[in-house]
């Protein structure tokens, strides 16, 4: 069972127009379960995923914090060590937009075997066999090996990307928006596939998405990100049935439900904040229906309810 501990992680981008605080102090811990990170575009969730892979592109940098994998602070590894030991071997990633995740000039087989080349001693025939196995695992035929990415449909490409992520049997797989741009049926197929693999192979999935309805199927723990901060985190059931943070509540209200009372879909007024100069105090306060004086001034800490946490001044007394 893998143990991932993220403590006060901050990732800032130093651009010519200002410093974007994309991830501003995120902490959570994960023990062998699956985690879903949900939030709007620009909330920092993709950056968080990239940070776990230590692949923050310039002009960004991990400014402070620690990522602890099975007791080791991997942020202290140098690039070479990270590359050979952590990346793809322990943590791998399914990227957002499988359309571009595959290099159009290389065959599927080549790209599947690539991690094997750099992380294992498998070469030649053995590597091919392993790659073919990986394809079968995700429900694709071994004949895909010779094909080129442009010959595959969106759903098939997504499966290849999943197969690629799993080929080294990592402990954690970060799935960044794996179902965006896929139609509903294929979405369902991919989710089911992920569920099955999670179960059979015992990997922890960290799923990053803006689509709350998708997460519910797959993960044990759900974290909500807003403006670079993790505003609420807890078991999936509880988040869905009893959201504490106003933002979470609003998010859930915006999701249409098939069952239950017919309620009006609500959108959240206002626009997401500029991460170069976020609002003081609680970052959600300009859009919050329950805003109080203290919210504008002081950042709320985590208030814990059993195994659920939320940063909202509403719960100052109740926790």
């Amino acid at each position: 069972m893998v143990e991932l501990e993220v403590d006060n992680l901050k990732v800032h981008f130093f651009t010519s127009t200002g410093t974007v605080r994309a991830v501003d102090g995120v902490s959570f811990s994960l023990k062998g379960k699956s985690l879903g990170i949900a939030g709007e575009s620009g909330s920092g969730k993709t950056t968080l995923g990239l940070a776990l892979m230590n692949l923050i592109p310039s002009p960004g940098r991990i400014v402070s914090g620690s990522i602890s994998l099975d007791g080791n602070n991997i942020l202290q590894f140098n690039e070479e060590k990270y590359r050979t030991e952590v990346r793809w071997r322990q943590i791998s990633m399914i990227f957002q937009g499988a359309m571009n995740a595959l290099n159009p000039v290389y065959t599927i087989g080549h790209q599947l075997m690539e991690p094997l080349k750099f992380h294992s001693e498998l070469v030649g025939e053995k590597a091919r066999k392993k790659a073919e196995d990986a394809l079968r695992e995700v429900g694709l035929d071994a004949s895909m090996m010779q094909r080129y990415p442009h010959e595959l449909s969106g759903g098939m490409k997504q499966r290849v990307v999943i197969a690629m992520a799993l080929i080294l049997r990592p402990k954690i797989v970060i799935a960044d928006e794996p179902t965006t741009a896929l139609d509903v049926i294929v979405q369902a197929q991919v989710i089911n596939l992920l569920k099955r693999l999670e179960r059979e192979l015992g990997i922890s999935i960290i799923m990053i998405t803006h689509d709350l309805s998708v997460i519910s199927e797959l993960v044990d723990i759900v974290g909500i990100m807003y403006a670079g901060e993790l505003v609420e985190i807890g078991p999936a059931e509880q988040i869905y049935n009893n959201p504490k943070h106003p933002y979470t509540q609003k998010l859930l209200n915006a999701v249409p439900r098939l069952h239950g009372k017919r309620t009006k879909l609500e959108s959240i007024p206002g626009i997401p904040p500029d991460l170069k100069s976020p609002p003081p105090g609680c970052r959600f306060h300009p859009r919050c229906p329950y805003v109080m004086g203290i919210c504008k001034v002081s950042t709320p800490p985590y208030f814990t309810f059993t195994d659920q946490k939320a940063t909202c001044w509403l719960y100052k007394e109740k926790a």
Binding site: L55, R87, W88, S92, L102, F118, V161, M164
Partner: peptide, 8 residues
């Protein structure tokens, strides 16, 4: 980015 992530 994917290739870098894969450890190339």
């Amino acid at each position: 980015t994917v290739a870098m992530a894969k450890g190339v």
